[in-house]
Simulated assay, not measured.
Amino acid sequence: MVPFSKRALVTGAFTLVLSVPAGGAFAMPALSDDGSSDGPQVRVSNSQTLADLAQSMRGEAFASASYRLYAKQARREGLPSVGRLFERTADVELGEHFKEEAALSGLVGSDAANLRDAVSGETYESQKMYPGFAQQARADGDSAAATRFSEIARDEGVHRGEFSTALHVVESGQGSVPAPSKVEEPTQVPAGPPKVQAQRTKANLDTAMHGEALAYAKYRLYAEHAENPAVARLFRGNAQVERREHFADEAKLAGLVGTTRSNLTKAISGERYESRTMYPTFAKRAKEAGDTGAATRFSHNAKDEARHAQAFQKALDRLS
């Protein structure tokens, strides 16, 4: 993963659901890079383990979204094999690690529970977080960021309305679930420096990117487990807006993407931190708390991340 603030848990935007959801948690086999399975997940309840799962899920979602942008940059530089490496790793981070940790935390519930979570997150972002970020960016002279924050706030307000309507339909059995928002034109994020100056704006962009990446990952899971096909379509559609527009726009402002050499260097640092420090620490705490399933998963993920770091290092060495 990419070590943004060493994967610090960002509070506020799209807070992870750590209590038992209305529809119960889903169980799934835990897969690794080699496709092996550790058997069904058992949901945990220890508060520290849940906090560690929340932090790691946020990091896995962010890594996956970032690596997809790095893959596109590698292809721009005529390095398709590096692009494929970033894409494969992004798939593992989101499709395996995030999913496995979500199962342990009991993230996914019924359609109604998932829609309520989405409404809560979109309300916070549209009414508090993004308007506040816009005001601060404007005060700090980052007018482009202020404008984009305000535009995203309006988008999230639309999403809030769509999810609220869908929730009414699910709970009342009356009406129709609205069609999702659409990605008009995916934002391209080539290598480039930050387009903002203030440290506060840069920090707010980091928070926002983590929130958008997490929303994308959560909505994808909510869609996958939706009982109502129309609710699944709504989650899938809005997930695309979160990653391909909002996350990408913020990444462009933040200068997230560098040259492939710098992207690989950053990825190596993040993967090594997680494999050597973060996941081993989480595994030790989970074991001490009696959460053996989570401890096993954290330890397994540490091994996966070490392999990712090695693969990225080999790719970087070939560029030398």
Rank of each mutant, 00 (worst) to 15 (best):
F14R: 09
S275R: 07
Q73K: 00
L31I: 12
M129F: 03
Y279K: 07
V10M: 12
V169A: 00
P180R: 08
F163A: 03
E250L: 01
P3V: 10
V177P: 03
A54N: 10
G161R: 00
T296I: 06
P280Q: 02
A8M: 09
A65S: 15
A74H: 03
L115P: 07
T89D: 03
R160T: 02
A74P: 05
A153D: 03
E227A: 10
T187G: 02
A54D: 13
N114T: 06
I268D: 08
S32G: 09
A306K: 13
E242S: 13
R148L: 11
H246W: 06
A139I: 00
E156R: 04
N263R: 11
T207M: 09
V189R: 01
T207F: 11
R318M: 15
D33R: 14
H168F: 06
V170C: 01
M209S: 03
L53C: 15
Y279R: 07
H159T: 05
L9H: 10
R307K: 04
R220N: 06
S36P: 06
E274V: 14
V158L: 02
G121Q: 07
E242A: 12
E151M: 06
L104D: 09
G161A: 00
V183N: 03
F312M: 13
E271I: 10
F14Y: 12
A203P: 06
M209I: 03
A283L: 11
V169W: 01
H159S: 02
S47Q: 09
R58G: 14
K182C: 08
A198S: 15
T11P: 05
E305A: 06
D140M: 05
V196W: 11
P194C: 09
D91N: 13
A8G: 09
L79C: 11
V10L: 14
K314C: 10
N301C: 08
F26A: 14
L16H: 02
L104N: 13
Y124G: 04
G141M: 14
G78C: 15
V189D: 02
G109D: 03
L79W: 07
R160W: 01
K99R: 13
D111Y: 02
A144P: 02
M278G: 06
H308D: 03
T259Y: 02
A139V: 01
V2A: 02
R75E: 12
P186M: 09
S120R: 12
R148Q: 10
V2Y: 07
G161L: 01
G161T: 00
T123V: 02
G24Y: 10
P131V: 00
N301L: 12
A8Y: 05
D206Q: 08
T187L: 08
P186G: 03
E305D: 07
H159E: 05
A198M: 15
A248V: 01
Q174H: 05
E184M: 09
G258F: 05
L94A: 15
H168I: 00
A286Y: 05
L316T: 12
R236Q: 15
R154I: 08
V92W: 13
A213S: 13
S269F: 05
D52T: 15
A103E: 11
P40W: 10
V183A: 08
Q313N: 10
F235H: 09
T260G: 04
A102Y: 08
D249P: 01
L264T: 04
G23E: 05
A215W: 04
A13T: 09
G141E: 13
A71W: 02
L94G: 04
G78D: 14
R88C: 12
T165F: 03
F312E: 10
Q41Y: 08
A191P: 02
E125K: 01
